[in-house]
Design a protein around this nucleic acid. Sequence first.
DNA 1: GACGACATGTAGAGACGCTACATGTAGACG
DNA 2: CGTCTACATGTAGCGTCTCTACATGTCGTC
Lengths: 109, 109
Amino acid sequence: MKADALRGHLDPMILAVVESEPLHGYAIMEALLERSGGELDLPTGTLYPALRRLERAGYLASEWSTVGGRKRRTYQLTSAGQKMLATGKSEWETFRAVVEGVLRPSAGH
Amino acid sequence: MKADALRGHLDPMILAVVESEPLHGYAIMEALLERSGGELDLPTGTLYPALRRLERAGYLASEWSTVGGRKRRTYQLTSAGQKMLATGKSEWETFRAVVEGVLRPSAGH
DNA sequence: GACGACATGTAGAGACGCTACATGTAGACG
DNA sequence: CGTCTACATGTAGCGTCTCTACATGTCGTC
């Protein structure tokens, strides 16, 4: 999977992963890896800046904690984030319909 | 639909449109608009550079003609372009599975 | 003591879709 | 004749996001 393909689609995916429960960065990485069937193995240079961006935008809120001597920054979805996630899901459906409408040999060309 | 969403997905869409018949730039724009149900209205600053990029990469070949006093550059798919289109379609399926695996409330979270 | 898993982060590069601009023809309408 | 819309192609420069590479540190195990 090419890197560029992810553009603009990563944000809702991150939000989706923390929807049911707050997670810290590393756990978000693992969750994405698992939910994607091993396909989505984000480098830290992608994930952490994305998380900060989402927090700055008000979609996530973070909190530091220490577990087993390791510091964790745990992110949870804000109410704005929930709305954004819903929007993102809806936009994904649109996008998907657009791509498939173009890609599949249309009914009558 | 956000601009970034398109990143990395535009190329296969363009190739798909010229698969069945060669088209010139403006006609490709119209075909994309039609196949996408009016959603995909590309600005010329996106389409024309993309076409040149695809030609430079060897996926498209172009030829000038004049129709009704207007000059047209008509693009057709090369054999490399056909392969690329097949790859692109396959990658789209993967990508789609990844996004939906993450986005939809997973079976057991 | 070294290594792998856990955990977070920054700096800089590269790619590409967008806005805005530039150019020109053909046909319709008043 | 002048203006406007559709047709038709193109470039310059911007902004943004993901990536690579690097930096730092803990914990448990061998």
